[in-house]
Amino acid sequence: MTVNVNNRMADDARDDHDELGASEYHAHCHEHGIPHEHVHDGALPHASTQHEDAQYHHGHDHAHDSAHPHGYHLLQVENLGVGFTMYDPDAPFFRAKKIVKNVIEGLSVSVHEGEILAIVGASGSGKTLLADSIMGLFEPNATVTGTIWFDGESQNAESLARLRGNGISLVPQSVAHLDPLMRVGVQVEGIAKNGETADERRAKRERLFARYDLKPEVAQMYPHELSGGMARRVLLCCALMDEPRVIVADEPTPGLDLDLAVKALADFREFADEGNGVLLITHDIELALRVADRVAVFKDGTVVEETAVANFASPELLRHPFSRALWHALPEHGFCAEEAAAC
C-alpha cells in the first residue's frame, strides 16, 4: 500500500506559480481544478472569495451556506485512486499473473464546514471504498494514491489512522457493527483515553444519551434489544463520544421507514450546523436531497459531478448526463430506466 502524500499535480502547480502573476495563477488553478489555497499558504486567502448559491467554483457547485472560514475545506479528497492487486481472472488458473484492478480513479470531493455532502451512486460503484480511504482503513492488497487534506493539513496513512476516532468518526450501517455480547453503555463509553478518566467518559456518554432521547436503562441493554431507531442513535453517540469534526456515515438509513430515516438525518443536520462536516454515503437519492447541502454523484469509481442540492430542482441545471439520468429515474419525475434518457 502506498499513499502519495504530496501529489505531483500540486508540485507542478507550485512550479508554475513562480512564473505566473497572482491573478493568472488563480485562473490557472481553476482551469486545472487545483485547490490553490493548499498549494501556497496565504498566497490567495480563499476566505475572501465570494460564494453565491450554487455557484460553480473549482470543480464543484456551492450550496447557500458553504463557507471556507480558514481558507480551506474541512475535508478534501483530491485525485484519489484505489486499486486492488489480484490474479488475472481471464487467464488460465495456473498461469494467471498478478494484475492491478483500479476500482476508484481520479476522485475528488470536498466537505465544507457546516455542511452535509451526500455521495450518491449505484451499489457496487466503490462508495464504501471512499469511506475506508478517509478512515485510513486499507485492505492488504490495496494500492491507494492521491491526497487527503483534513482541517488544512495534508494526511498520510499513519496520520489518517491516528485521526480515526480522533477527528473523523464513522457511523456504520447497522447494529451488526456493535459487539452483540457487550452492554450498549460500556460499548459507547469505550476505553479511557486522551487523559480522560472512565468516570468522565461515563458522564459524557450520559449527556449524549440524554441529548438523543435515549433512556438511562438503554445503557444496560444488549444490541439485539434495540429498535431500529434506538440503534441508529446509539451508533451516532459512539461516533460523537470523541468529539469529531467530520462524520462519515455509510448507508445509515436502509431498513428504517421514512419517518425514522428523516429523523436520523436530522441528527446529522444538527451536528453539521455546529460547524462540523458530514459525508453521507447513500444510494437513496430522494433522502439525500431532503437533508444534504450538496450532492456528489458517483459512477464507476469516480465523482462525475459535485453540485448543490438546489440544482436537482431541474435537470437542466445538472452538468453530467448520468446525474440527469438519475433525476429522470426518480419515481416522482419520469421513473425512466434509460441511462441516456430524457423522457
Binding site: V120, G121, A122, S123, P254, G255, H283, I285, E286, A325, L326, A329, L330, P331, F335, C336, A337, E339
Partner: peptide, 15 residues
C-alpha cells in the same frame, strides 16, 4: 428496491 440506487430501481421495475 430499497437497497438500490434510483437508476437500477427504475430499470428493474420497468422490466
Amino acid at each position: 428496491t430499497t437497497m438500490l440506487d434510483a437508476l437500477t430501481q427504475a430499470q428493474i421495475w420497468a422490466f
